[in-house]
Every structure is written in C-alpha cells, then in structure tokens.
Design a protein around this nucleic acid. Sequence first.
DNA 1: CATGTTGGTATACTCTGTTATACTGGTAAC
DNA 2: GTTACCAGTATAACAGAGTATACCAACATG
Lengths: 125, 125
Amino acid sequence: MEDQLRLEKAREVLSNPRNQKEEVQALQDTIYVIGGKWKLPIVNSLCNGNKRFRDIERSIPGITTRMLSRELKDMEANQLVRRTVIPDSPVLVEYTVTDYCRSFGDIILEMIKWGKQHREKIRKK
Amino acid sequence: MEDQLRLEKAREVLSNPRNQKEEVQALQDTIYVIGGKWKLPIVNSLCNGNKRFRDIERSIPGITTRMLSRELKDMEANQLVRRTVIPDSPVLVEYTVTDYCRSFGDIILEMIKWGKQHREKIRKK
DNA sequence: CATGTTGGTATACTCTGTTATACTGGTAAC
DNA sequence: GTTACCAGTATAACAGAGTATACCAACATG
C-alpha cells in the first residue's frame, strides 16, 4: 500500500516538471503567509489558549508590542485571526485563531518537534 | 533539588497544555534555521533530485545566483547540505541534502499541502 | 492620588535579507 | 573564434522587517 504510494510519488517527481513548479509555488505561498520571525509563534500562542494582547505578548519572549500589534492586524486581514471586543467595563479584547489558521497546527507541531531534536543534537555535540 | 523538581512539575501541571516556553523556543529555533524566502524551496529542490547549481537555480523561479550561492553556503555550514566536487573535466559540483536536512521533509510536505489548499481557497472566492 | 494594568499607537532608527546587474575563468560545441 | 554553458563572485542599492523607546486613554488597586 505504502510502496505503491511511494512509487506513484516517484513517478510524479521523475516525469512531471510542471508539478514541481506547482509545488514550489505552493511552498512559497505558504512561506509568504506565515513567514517572518513572529507569525507562527503568535499562532502557537493563540492555539495554546492565550487570548489577551498582554498574555500573548508575555508568552512570546522578545516580541515587542509593535510587532505583535502589526502581525495581529496582518493576520486579521488575512482571516487567520479573529479580534473580538467585549464591551464590558473595562473593555476586553480577545484574539482567537480561525479554523483556517488552525490548519497550520500540523506544520507548527512538526517545527516544534524539529526544533527540540535540533537543540538536543547541538547540546550533545 | 527535589523541591525544584516538584516545583517544575507543579508549574507544568498548572500552566497551559504543554511546556509553553520550551515549545516557543523550539519553534523559534526552527524558524531561525529554515527561515527566509529561499531555504525551504532549495531543500525541496534538492529533495526532488536536483543536484547541480544551475538546475537548482532553474527549478526555483525568481531566485538569483547570489541568493542561491549564499543560502547553499549557509546551509552547508549548518550541515544541512553537502557539497561535493567531482574533479572531472569539466569540474562538476553536486549538492545533496544530509539526512539531518531530510528531516524537514514532513514540514515541507505540510507546507506544500497548505499552500495548495490556500490557492484553491483564493481561487474559489 | 500614585502606581500598575490593558490594549495598543507614534516616531525614529538599524540591519540584513533581497534584488539588480555585471563579470570571471574554465570547458565545450558549432 | 564566437557563442553558450557551468559554477559561481563583486558591487551597489533598496525595501521593509524588526528594534528601541516613549507615550496614550481608560480603568483598577493600594
């Protein structure tokens, strides 16, 4: 079963240069949307349950209010993040990820896994 | 010593899902290593079987020789890429990914998947 | 009533990733 | 002997990502 899949994949790679271009493009699209130093950490923070501006800020070491503000706006515009104002007194603002954004979950998990292995590897050297 | 362990455990239990700080750090490490516009497309190209400088260059639309050269050097220094000179006449140079680098495979596949879905979503709108 | 928190904005600056363009030295084919 | 391919390097310039710092209005706490 898996062998067949692998074979198909191999055939695809070997005989279809157009497919390759398409994949590069897809990859670059994704990099464009979630690229930069802060977007994925922000998504991760939101996925971990942080909703308030200062909480998110505190959960990401090194980020400035300016960057957080910019990135949140950017991601809101791209419908990755939802901003909700709760008109209590005092006014509360809540940020949450959209389902669309949640689809980055797997990528983030893979990257966390890799980062941990990497740190382990460096430590051992 | 034991107190510290117990404290850490308590903190772990109390805080959100997993060890947040550690995960943010792992995520940022990974972003640091494969961040930027070109590294992942290069890895992808190498994984797709391209070994020669000009082949890699041609397989990634928009990249310049300068960027390719720089990124390859950078990744070679970080042991993600191996550079082999075959002293034929003419001299050939071959680039290949290391096993270490191959561990990005899953991340790249996830990102390609996401990019395709994204493009599809945009197209439908 | 002074201090701290929340959710940010304003201004100015740095830095480096990225682009653009030209060029090199060697080989090979026409 | 001109053209073209390979594997790059050199130089300059730019855009914008990211940093640093201060500040704001509204509310809460001591």
